[in-house]
Computed example of a mutant assay.
Amino acid sequence: MQTSFIQPENAIYISIKTVVKSQELVDINSLAKVLTALNASFQSLVQAEMNIRYSNPTSGLKKELKQLFSESRLLIADFDFNRFTLTIVPDLSVSKFAYRKLNQLPELKPELFELFSNTVFNTTVFTSAFAEQISKKYNAKERIAIFTPVYEAIINQNDFVFYFGNEPSLINNRWFNTDDKELLTNLIPEQIKKTKEQVETYYQYVKTGEESDLFGKRSKYKKVLIKEALQHDLYPYQLQKLRVNRKNVLFSKQLSAAVAVKDGLYQISFPELQISEKNENRIEAEKAFDAALAVLISRFEKGNWSTDQKTQTLFLKLKELIAEG
Protein backbone atom coordinates (compact mmCIF):
# COMPACT_ATOMS: atom_id res chain seq x y z
CA MET A 1 0.00 0.00 0.00
CA GLN A 2 1.13 3.51 -0.81
CA THR A 3 -0.02 6.04 1.77
CA SER A 4 -0.99 9.61 0.93
CA PHE A 5 -2.23 12.04 3.56
CA ILE A 6 -4.95 14.63 3.15
CA GLN A 7 -4.18 18.31 3.44
CA PRO A 8 -3.72 19.68 6.99
CA GLU A 9 -6.87 21.80 6.78
CA ASN A 10 -8.91 18.57 6.68
CA ALA A 11 -7.16 17.09 9.70
CA ILE A 12 -8.09 17.07 13.37
CA TYR A 13 -5.55 18.52 15.78
CA ILE A 14 -5.60 17.29 19.37
CA SER A 15 -3.64 18.11 22.50
CA ILE A 16 -3.49 16.26 25.82
CA LYS A 17 -2.52 17.96 29.05
CA THR A 18 -1.96 15.82 32.11
CA VAL A 19 0.01 16.09 35.34
CA VAL A 20 2.21 13.26 36.61
CA LYS A 21 4.26 13.82 39.77
CA SER A 22 3.78 17.59 39.56
CA GLN A 23 5.30 17.74 36.08
CA GLU A 24 3.51 18.30 32.80
CA LEU A 25 3.98 14.90 31.23
CA VAL A 26 1.80 12.69 29.09
CA ASP A 27 0.80 9.36 30.55
CA ILE A 28 1.26 6.50 28.07
CA ASN A 29 -1.90 4.71 29.20
CA SER A 30 -3.96 7.87 28.76
CA LEU A 31 -2.61 8.43 25.26
CA ALA A 32 -3.28 4.82 24.26
CA LYS A 33 -6.87 5.03 25.53
CA VAL A 34 -7.48 8.28 23.66
CA LEU A 35 -6.20 6.99 20.32
CA THR A 36 -8.05 3.68 20.66
CA ALA A 37 -11.29 5.48 21.54
CA LEU A 38 -11.04 7.88 18.60
CA ASN A 39 -10.39 5.06 16.15
CA ALA A 40 -13.32 3.01 17.49
CA SER A 41 -15.62 6.02 17.29
CA PHE A 42 -14.55 6.77 13.71
CA GLN A 43 -15.09 3.18 12.56
CA SER A 44 -18.53 3.09 14.19
CA LEU A 45 -19.60 6.33 12.53
CA VAL A 46 -18.45 5.09 9.12
CA GLN A 47 -20.43 1.89 9.56
CA ALA A 48 -23.54 3.72 10.78
CA GLU A 49 -23.41 6.23 7.93
CA MET A 50 -22.96 3.60 5.24
CA ASN A 51 -25.78 1.52 6.72
CA ILE A 52 -28.04 4.54 6.26
CA ARG A 53 -26.93 5.14 2.69
CA TYR A 54 -27.15 1.47 1.74
CA SER A 55 -29.94 0.01 3.86
CA ASN A 56 -30.50 -3.02 1.60
CA PRO A 57 -27.11 -3.83 0.04
CA THR A 58 -26.60 -6.64 -2.44
CA SER A 59 -24.19 -9.45 -1.58
CA GLY A 60 -21.49 -7.82 -3.71
CA LEU A 61 -21.95 -4.45 -2.04
CA LYS A 62 -21.86 -6.10 1.40
CA LYS A 63 -18.36 -7.38 0.65
CA GLU A 64 -17.23 -3.93 -0.43
CA LEU A 65 -18.73 -2.28 2.65
CA LYS A 66 -17.01 -4.84 4.88
CA GLN A 67 -13.71 -4.03 3.18
CA LEU A 68 -14.33 -0.30 3.58
CA PHE A 69 -15.00 -0.75 7.31
CA SER A 70 -11.72 -2.64 7.71
CA GLU A 71 -9.87 0.19 5.95
CA SER A 72 -11.46 2.93 8.05
CA ARG A 73 -8.57 3.84 10.31
CA LEU A 74 -7.16 7.02 11.78
CA LEU A 75 -3.48 7.84 11.41
CA ILE A 76 -1.08 10.22 13.14
CA ALA A 77 0.31 12.52 10.45
CA ASP A 78 2.38 14.70 12.77
CA PHE A 79 3.48 14.70 16.41
CA ASP A 80 4.76 17.84 18.13
CA PHE A 81 6.59 16.69 21.26
CA ASN A 82 7.19 20.23 22.52
CA ARG A 83 3.49 21.10 22.74
CA PHE A 84 2.32 17.48 22.70
CA THR A 85 -0.10 17.94 19.85
CA LEU A 86 -1.08 15.31 17.32
CA THR A 87 -2.40 15.69 13.80
CA ILE A 88 -5.06 13.06 13.08
CA VAL A 89 -6.02 12.13 9.51
CA PRO A 90 -7.86 9.20 7.88
CA ASP A 91 -6.04 6.36 6.18
CA LEU A 92 -6.27 7.10 2.45
CA SER A 93 -4.08 4.20 1.39
CA VAL A 94 -4.72 2.83 -2.08
CA SER A 95 -6.16 -0.63 -1.56
CA LYS A 96 -5.60 -3.58 -3.86
CA PHE A 97 -9.22 -4.59 -3.29
CA ALA A 98 -11.29 -4.19 -6.46
CA TYR A 99 -14.17 -1.89 -5.60
CA ARG A 100 -16.94 -1.94 -8.21
CA LYS A 101 -20.00 -0.55 -6.44
CA LEU A 102 -18.13 1.94 -4.25
CA ASN A 103 -16.13 3.46 -7.08
CA GLN A 104 -15.65 6.95 -5.63
CA LEU A 105 -13.43 6.12 -2.66
CA PRO A 106 -11.00 9.04 -3.19
CA GLU A 107 -13.93 11.37 -2.46
CA LEU A 108 -15.83 9.10 -0.05
CA LYS A 109 -13.10 8.56 2.55
CA PRO A 110 -12.34 12.27 3.14
CA GLU A 111 -16.09 12.95 3.19
CA LEU A 112 -16.64 10.38 5.95
CA PHE A 113 -13.72 11.79 7.92
CA GLU A 114 -15.17 15.30 7.65
CA LEU A 115 -18.52 13.94 8.85
CA PHE A 116 -16.74 12.35 11.83
CA SER A 117 -15.00 15.64 12.61
CA ASN A 118 -18.24 17.64 12.44
CA THR A 119 -20.25 15.07 14.42
CA VAL A 120 -17.97 13.88 17.22
CA PHE A 121 -15.55 16.82 17.45
CA ASN A 122 -18.42 19.19 18.03
CA THR A 123 -18.48 21.61 20.96
CA THR A 124 -22.31 21.39 21.11
CA VAL A 125 -22.38 17.63 21.79
CA PHE A 126 -23.94 18.09 25.24
CA THR A 127 -26.84 20.27 24.15
CA SER A 128 -30.46 19.25 23.71
CA ALA A 129 -30.46 20.49 20.11
CA PHE A 130 -27.50 18.28 19.16
CA ALA A 131 -28.87 15.24 21.03
CA GLU A 132 -32.24 15.62 19.31
CA GLN A 133 -30.65 16.03 15.89
CA ILE A 134 -28.26 13.08 16.24
CA SER A 135 -30.96 10.77 17.66
CA LYS A 136 -33.06 11.38 14.56
CA LYS A 137 -30.20 10.32 12.29
CA TYR A 138 -28.60 7.41 14.17
CA ASN A 139 -30.42 4.75 16.18
CA ALA A 140 -29.62 3.83 19.78
CA LYS A 141 -27.14 1.08 18.87
CA GLU A 142 -25.26 3.38 16.49
CA ARG A 143 -25.09 6.27 18.98
CA ILE A 144 -23.75 3.93 21.66
CA ALA A 145 -21.02 2.70 19.30
CA ILE A 146 -20.07 6.21 18.14
CA PHE A 147 -20.08 8.17 21.39
CA THR A 148 -19.42 5.66 24.19
CA PRO A 149 -15.67 5.17 23.42
CA VAL A 150 -15.05 8.94 23.43
CA TYR A 151 -17.22 9.54 26.48
CA GLU A 152 -15.66 6.82 28.62
CA ALA A 153 -12.00 7.31 27.60
CA ILE A 154 -11.85 11.09 27.18
CA ILE A 155 -14.82 13.03 28.53
CA ASN A 156 -15.85 11.18 31.70
CA GLN A 157 -12.44 11.12 33.42
CA ASN A 158 -10.18 13.41 35.46
CA ASP A 159 -6.68 12.22 34.54
CA PHE A 160 -6.05 14.71 31.73
CA VAL A 161 -7.55 17.58 29.76
CA PHE A 162 -8.28 17.00 26.08
CA TYR A 163 -8.28 19.85 23.55
CA PHE A 164 -9.04 19.78 19.84
CA GLY A 165 -9.26 22.11 16.86
CA ASN A 166 -9.27 22.37 13.07
CA GLU A 167 -6.05 24.38 12.89
CA PRO A 168 -2.68 23.65 14.53
CA SER A 169 -2.58 27.15 16.01
CA LEU A 170 -6.12 26.97 17.45
CA ILE A 171 -6.33 23.79 19.51
CA ASN A 172 -8.54 25.26 22.21
CA ASN A 173 -11.89 23.46 21.95
CA ARG A 174 -13.06 21.12 24.72
CA TRP A 175 -15.93 18.84 25.59
CA PHE A 176 -17.56 19.64 28.92
CA ASN A 177 -19.35 16.81 30.68
CA THR A 178 -22.98 17.16 31.72
CA ASP A 179 -25.06 16.19 34.77
CA ASP A 180 -28.25 16.20 32.69
CA LYS A 181 -29.16 12.49 32.76
CA GLU A 182 -31.99 12.90 30.26
CA LEU A 183 -29.69 14.59 27.78
CA LEU A 184 -26.95 12.00 28.26
CA THR A 185 -29.42 9.11 27.95
CA ASN A 186 -30.73 10.56 24.71
CA LEU A 187 -27.21 10.95 23.33
CA ILE A 188 -25.83 7.63 24.62
CA PRO A 189 -28.65 5.24 25.63
CA GLU A 190 -27.95 2.83 28.45
CA GLN A 191 -26.69 -0.49 27.14
CA ILE A 192 -28.33 -3.82 27.89
CA LYS A 193 -26.26 -6.94 28.36
CA LYS A 194 -26.55 -9.37 25.48
CA THR A 195 -27.42 -12.99 26.04
CA LYS A 196 -24.37 -15.22 25.78
CA GLU A 197 -26.05 -18.15 24.08
CA GLN A 198 -28.30 -18.40 21.07
CA VAL A 199 -31.45 -20.34 21.84
CA GLU A 200 -34.20 -21.60 19.59
CA THR A 201 -37.71 -20.29 20.16
CA TYR A 202 -40.90 -22.31 19.86
CA TYR A 203 -44.61 -21.71 19.97
CA GLN A 204 -46.07 -24.18 22.43
CA TYR A 205 -49.78 -24.72 22.93
CA VAL A 206 -50.69 -26.66 26.06
CA LYS A 207 -53.79 -27.86 27.85
CA THR A 208 -53.66 -26.73 31.46
CA GLY A 209 -55.67 -25.64 34.46
CA GLU A 210 -55.75 -22.04 35.68
CA GLU A 211 -53.74 -19.54 33.67
CA SER A 212 -51.67 -18.65 36.73
CA ASP A 213 -50.38 -22.21 36.82
CA LEU A 214 -48.34 -21.47 33.70
CA PHE A 215 -45.96 -19.35 35.76
CA GLY A 216 -46.05 -21.29 39.02
CA LYS A 217 -43.56 -23.81 40.32
CA ARG A 218 -46.10 -26.59 39.96
CA SER A 219 -47.56 -26.05 36.53
CA LYS A 220 -50.47 -28.34 35.70
CA TYR A 221 -49.76 -29.12 32.07
CA LYS A 222 -52.04 -31.93 30.97
CA LYS A 223 -50.94 -32.20 27.38
CA VAL A 224 -48.70 -30.42 24.87
CA LEU A 225 -50.90 -29.86 21.84
CA ILE A 226 -48.51 -28.18 19.37
CA LYS A 227 -44.81 -27.33 19.47
CA GLU A 228 -43.64 -25.33 16.46
CA ALA A 229 -40.20 -23.82 15.79
CA LEU A 230 -40.17 -20.13 14.81
CA GLN A 231 -38.29 -18.65 11.88
CA HIS A 232 -38.11 -15.36 13.80
CA ASP A 233 -38.49 -14.48 17.48
CA LEU A 234 -41.90 -12.85 17.14
CA TYR A 235 -43.21 -13.32 20.66
CA PRO A 236 -44.22 -10.02 22.36
CA TYR A 237 -41.55 -7.98 24.12
CA GLN A 238 -42.78 -7.60 27.69
CA LEU A 239 -41.58 -5.32 30.48
CA GLN A 240 -42.63 -5.12 34.12
CA LYS A 241 -39.91 -2.62 35.02
CA LEU A 242 -37.16 -0.57 33.38
CA ARG A 243 -33.88 0.84 34.67
CA VAL A 244 -33.93 4.62 34.16
CA ASN A 245 -31.34 7.02 35.59
CA ARG A 246 -29.97 4.37 37.98
CA LYS A 247 -33.34 3.42 39.44
CA ASN A 248 -36.05 0.90 38.61
CA VAL A 249 -39.30 2.26 37.23
CA LEU A 250 -42.17 -0.18 37.83
CA PHE A 251 -45.22 -0.39 35.60
CA SER A 252 -48.75 -0.81 36.91
CA LYS A 253 -49.23 -3.63 34.44
CA GLN A 254 -46.92 -5.59 32.23
CA LEU A 255 -46.11 -3.70 29.04
CA SER A 256 -46.46 -5.89 25.99
CA ALA A 257 -44.97 -4.54 22.76
CA ALA A 258 -45.69 -6.12 19.39
CA VAL A 259 -42.76 -7.66 17.51
CA ALA A 260 -42.63 -8.03 13.73
CA VAL A 261 -40.04 -8.50 11.00
CA LYS A 262 -40.22 -6.09 8.07
CA ASP A 263 -37.66 -5.83 5.28
CA GLY A 264 -35.30 -8.05 7.26
CA LEU A 265 -35.42 -5.86 10.37
CA TYR A 266 -36.99 -6.57 13.75
CA GLN A 267 -39.54 -3.92 14.66
CA ILE A 268 -40.81 -3.52 18.24
CA SER A 269 -43.84 -1.25 18.55
CA PHE A 270 -45.94 0.11 21.39
CA PRO A 271 -48.51 2.42 19.75
CA GLU A 272 -49.93 3.65 23.06
CA LEU A 273 -46.65 5.52 23.69
CA GLN A 274 -45.85 6.06 20.00
CA ILE A 275 -42.64 4.02 20.25
CA SER A 276 -41.41 1.95 17.32
CA GLU A 277 -37.79 0.81 17.01
CA LYS A 278 -36.05 -1.31 14.37
CA ASN A 279 -32.83 -3.27 14.20
CA GLU A 280 -31.29 -6.21 12.39
CA ASN A 281 -31.69 -8.55 15.37
CA ARG A 282 -34.16 -8.78 18.22
CA ILE A 283 -31.73 -8.11 21.07
CA GLU A 284 -30.60 -4.81 19.56
CA ALA A 285 -34.21 -3.87 18.76
CA GLU A 286 -35.10 -4.48 22.42
CA LYS A 287 -32.17 -2.29 23.45
CA ALA A 288 -33.35 0.51 21.16
CA PHE A 289 -36.92 0.18 22.48
CA ASP A 290 -35.73 0.38 26.11
CA ALA A 291 -33.63 3.45 25.28
CA ALA A 292 -36.55 5.24 23.63
CA LEU A 293 -38.83 4.40 26.56
CA ALA A 294 -36.19 5.54 29.07
CA VAL A 295 -35.89 8.93 27.36
CA LEU A 296 -39.67 9.34 27.43
CA ILE A 297 -39.83 8.45 31.14
CA SER A 298 -36.97 10.86 31.92
CA ARG A 299 -38.84 13.70 30.22
CA PHE A 300 -42.00 12.76 32.09
CA GLU A 301 -40.30 12.64 35.51
CA LYS A 302 -38.51 15.91 34.86
CA GLY A 303 -41.85 17.60 34.24
CA ASN A 304 -40.84 18.54 30.70
CA TRP A 305 -44.45 18.64 29.52
CA SER A 306 -45.01 20.39 26.24
CA THR A 307 -48.07 22.51 25.52
CA ASP A 308 -48.57 20.34 22.47
CA GLN A 309 -51.78 18.35 22.89
CA LYS A 310 -50.28 15.13 21.50
CA THR A 311 -47.40 15.27 23.98
CA GLN A 312 -49.74 15.89 26.91
CA THR A 313 -51.91 12.95 25.86
CA LEU A 314 -48.80 10.79 25.56
CA PHE A 315 -47.58 11.70 29.06
CA LEU A 316 -51.03 11.11 30.55
CA LYS A 317 -50.97 7.61 29.09
CA LEU A 318 -47.47 7.06 30.46
CA LYS A 319 -48.65 8.23 33.88
CA GLU A 320 -51.32 5.52 33.83
CA LEU A 321 -48.73 2.87 33.01
CA ILE A 322 -46.19 3.81 35.71
CA ALA A 323 -46.95 2.30 39.11
CA GLU A 324 -47.34 4.79 41.93
CA GLY A 325 -44.56 4.38 44.45
Rank of each mutant, 00 (worst) to 15 (best):
F162A: 00
N158S: 12
E190V: 09
I88M: 03
I268V: 06
L35I: 10
I226K: 00
K319M: 08
A285G: 14
K278R: 14
L255I: 09
Q274A: 13
L170D: 14
G325D: 14
I322C: 12
R100W: 03
A77R: 03
D27C: 07
T58S: 06
K241D: 15
K278E: 12
E9L: 02
Q133P: 03
S252V: 08
L239S: 03
L115T: 01
E182I: 14
R246L: 14
Q47G: 04
E284G: 02
I154R: 09
T124H: 04
E9M: 01
L61I: 12
Q67R: 15
P271I: 08
I88G: 01
A323T: 11
G165N: 08
R53T: 10
L68C: 11
Y221C: 00
E211W: 03
K196E: 09
E277G: 08
Q231V: 10
A140K: 08
F79Q: 13
E9N: 04
K33P: 01
Q231Y: 06
A323R: 01
K217P: 04
N166D: 09
R174G: 05
V206S: 03
E320F: 05
A288C: 00
P8V: 05
Q240P: 02
A257E: 14
Q7C: 08
I322W: 14
V259Y: 01
E200K: 13
N248E: 15
L105K: 06
L250Q: 10
D180P: 13
Q191Y: 07
D233G: 01
E132A: 07
